[in-house]
Simulated scan of single mutants.
Amino acid sequence: MFSKTTLATIAASALSLSTLFVAPLTQAAQVSLPDDLQVLSIDGHSDNNTSDTLQLNKGSHVLVVRYRDLFSGITADDSATWVKSQPLYLQFSVDTQNVALTTPTLDDVADAQTYLKHPYLDITTNKADSRRFSLQPAANVIADLLAAQR
């Protein structure tokens, strides 16, 4: 059958969780990513790209991303700590040439853990539009799909 991740991607594509821009498919848009965001898949296709930019056709897309960042210890003797999220889903549409996805500036492990309780991305375009979108774990995407079928 389908894996939980595949089902959530299908569900996110089927539901309009959040729409930023609406436009027909034409030339590619450049999407810049922060260093602390790893793209796991784009529109249901695995992404092994380690670049800080994506080329996406204009139109609607579903990204599966993971937040991950390394925080230094308080003293030199403390080891660094990785903070990583589960796969998170974002559905958005692009109609401009340049789009920037950004996460908030987080100073320590506690800030990162608080952020991951309600993760979000700010999306800014070359038109100077900026909006905040919640990132959703797979369970929430599947729950939204099931609720929409009632």
Rank of each mutant, 00 (worst) to 15 (best):
V94H: 01
A139T: 10
D36Q: 10
L90R: 00
H118W: 05
G59Y: 04
S41I: 07
Q38V: 14
T9F: 04
R66G: 10
G59W: 02
D107M: 09
K84A: 11
Q149D: 12
P87N: 02
Q113W: 03
Q86C: 03
L25Q: 14
I42D: 07
Y89V: 00
G73E: 11
F71N: 04
A12M: 11
L63P: 03
R68D: 12
P24C: 09
F71C: 06
T114V: 09
T75L: 10
Y120R: 06
N126R: 03
A128K: 08
S32N: 10
T125L: 06
T53Y: 14
T114Y: 06
N140D: 14
M1W: 09
M1T: 11
L15E: 11
K4V: 08
A139H: 02
T96D: 10
T6S: 11
L70W: 05
L90T: 00
Q27V: 08
A12T: 05
V99H: 03
R66D: 05
K127V: 10
A28E: 13
S16V: 07
L106S: 03
A28K: 08
N126W: 04
S3V: 09
T105V: 12
T50H: 11
A11G: 15
P87V: 01
F21Y: 09
L25P: 12
D122T: 15
P34K: 03
N98P: 06
S85R: 03
H118I: 11
T75F: 10
A110D: 12
V39M: 07
H118L: 11
L88W: 00
D122G: 11
L88G: 00
T50W: 04
D36Y: 02
Y67S: 09
S85H: 01
N98F: 09
Q149M: 14
V65Q: 00
I10H: 03
N126T: 04
T103H: 04
T53R: 09
V62T: 08
I142A: 08
L106Y: 05
V65C: 00
A138P: 04
L15F: 09
D52N: 15
K117P: 08
F92T: 00
I74T: 13
N126D: 15
T125A: 12
A100N: 11
T114P: 01
D52I: 08
D47L: 13
D108N: 15
T103R: 00
I74Q: 10
L70Q: 13
